[in-house]
Design a protein around this nucleic acid. Structure first.
Lengths: 340, 340
DNA sequence: ATGGTGAGAGAAAGCGTTTTCTCAACCCTA
DNA sequence: TAGGGTTGAGAAAACGCTTTCTCTCACCAT
């Protein structure tokens, strides 16, 4: 099985092949391919013909090396299976591809420990990175951010002025949500917590504490929950145990799990217990009853993130940081508090 | 703002910097970094120290160029917003990252026209590619497949023996589904079609025709539908118009849209009309009533696809092509046919 | 002593581009 | 007709690595 010298070989053609065929120098080929005007029309045509005949196109790798840019953007998300991040990824990907950029995704599987290495490694292959690492400790984030530049942080406040960010204002969103159920007459609430160490969970807790502090007539319990269906599902007992009339779930997924468990147990929603989610994932409106939630425009969030990396990439100062104030979408899963 | 020659510069260190600091040659540094044993222990230690001090790690770009491999896999999907492809992407990504591989995603936005260029372009930056292009004409697919190798095709039959593939057997799945509603007594069905030119739609149609041919007592209408919520939602009229007692939707998304529209119009599911989906996306079980569907293990599908590229990448012959026979999951959206 | 061996390390080639540098030829003007 | 300015194209350096090739030196057996 020696390398027989068969006339045609399967190796992808290089610039040298084109140069040889067109009987010009490498430089000329390069110039033609990059649209430099400083080349004779006849020669240019010859080069183009040769390139076409050979099916040549420049190696992105070699090009990246010399140009110092890869035309690729890294994105780190905690969980590719979560609709929230899927949405952001989509918005990002759309924006990027529009500008001829490629997207490298890395899924950290919610393991905060891996995020650092994952991000740094991914970043090295790209021109910039969008980081979504809700569980990473603030100090660690602050530490790696400079190594990652150009970087934009998504879904949390990076806590540094020099790093653009786009995120939902979970605190204000949850405050609105609390007000919503309060207005419906609920006075005993329960918050089904997300990951304890997640920034967005802390934001929500802040809203809860503030709301509790400013409303003496309301009681808010906090029980452990999580970020997925199952977490919400298995928290049903503790929710019921509190005797609260309204359950504020960390997100839509948990809310849906809870809703399901409650319904199975014969608890009527919203007659007995009101339930709220967070994010307004595409499916939130299709549950029974449809889920009341705080809408976060995730795809737009991704799009805005792209806009900011793009600015950074072009040496421009990105637009102001964006903090989306989630909007409460009142649907069927919340109703008036049952008469005591 | 000239480039002042400040002692410390922010440029990422190269192998030359490490060599200089350790007072050895480039070759030695390279050898140490790649774990070659043929280097003196003392020297090796010096190199490691220097690398650490400088925070050096080899440029993946330069490395890729010389090694001829990028440690990256391209994935082309028709729609990042679709749970089916999200699942596959996830399975793929998990497998890849386990082997230190990165994943480049490209979303073709269901535009068959773009898929070709997208795939070729993405492929050039990677060592291999997983292609999911349901709408691409068979001839075009057949034409570009050789250019893409190593490649594995997902979600459709590539029609060439030399290209590994992993896909769901839509035909058998739909046949089972038809049998399911038939067994429930339904004799007048309506198929809510997907994209006309999609391979998986043709597979389903084949099942329909066959079923119709072998069961004279059953009538199956076909109406235009689509692949998303809205498509299903807006097809409600034509579905009702047929007078069928069971609607077979192209996929879960369309089924959910249809379910929603029907419910709004006071049509009871499944008392008046039974509805079935396809894929068993995570949310299918949370509709009201829960959706009867044919389960396709999308994540596993992605995982298997990875296994096959991985084999290809290592010069091994990948395992047999896999065709998952979807399993009907009977849930609440299908019931006995109403008495005529 | 001496030629052979083998280990360890540096020099240099090569990966496929882009771009600066250099040079030859041409045209114009004095 | 000579000199200066364009214009166009090739040679070569650079990007940051890996790996082959080459060389030196120490060691061992003869």
């Amino acid at each position: 099985m020696g390398k027989a010298k068969t006339g045609v070989d399967r190796r992808t053609p290089t610039i040298a092949d084109v140069a040889a065929r067109a009987e010009v120098s490498l430089s000329t080929v390069s110039r033609v391919m990059n649209g430099s005007t400083t080349v004779d029309a006849a020669l240019a045509e010859r080069v183009r013909e040769a390139a076409l005949a050979l099916g040549y196109s420049a190696s992105p790798l070699a090009r990246s090396l010399v140009l110092g840019k890869t035309q690729t953007l890294a994105v780190v998300v905690p969980d590719l299976g979560n609709p929230t991040f899927q949405g952001a990824l989509r918005g990002l990907s759309d924006g990027a591809s529009e500008k001829g950029y490629h997207v490298l995704v890395a899924d950290s599987h919610e393991r905060a420990a891996d995020e650092r290495e994952l991000a740094i490694e991914a970043r090295r292959r790209c021109d910039g990175i969008v980081l979504c690492a809700p569980r990473m400790p603030a100090e660690e984030l602050d530490e790696i951010l400079p190594l990652l530049a150009p970087v934009v942080v998504i879904n949390r406040d990076p806590g540094r002025a020099d790093v653009p960010s786009v995120f939902a204002d979970y605190r204000s969103g949850l405050t609105q949500m609390l007000q919503h159920v309060y207005d419906l007459g609920h006075r005993h609430l329960v918050y089904l917590e997300g990951s304890e160490n997640a920034a967005s969970n802390r934001n929500r807790l802040a809203a809860i504490h503030e709301f509790g502090a400013t409303h003496d007539d309301v009681r808010i319990d906090v029980v452990p929950g999580g970020v997925g269906f199952e977490d919400g599902y298995s928290a049903a007992q503790s929710v019921v145990g509190t005797g609260a009339t309204a359950a504020i779930a960390f997100n839509d997924l948990a809310a849906m799990g809870l809703l399901n468990a409650l319904t199975e147990q014969g608890v009527r929603v919203p007659q007995d217990v009101s339930i709220t989610g967070f994010d307004d994932i595409p499916f939130a409106r299709y549950t029974t009853p449809p889920l009341t939630t705080a809408a976060v425009p995730v795809e737009e969030l991704g799009a805005q993130a792209w806009e900011r990396v793009w600015a950074l990439l072009n040496g421009r100062t990105p637009a102001y940081n964006l903090s989306f104030g989630p909007l409460v979408v009142a649907r069927g899963s919340t109703g008036p508090a049952p008469a005591a």
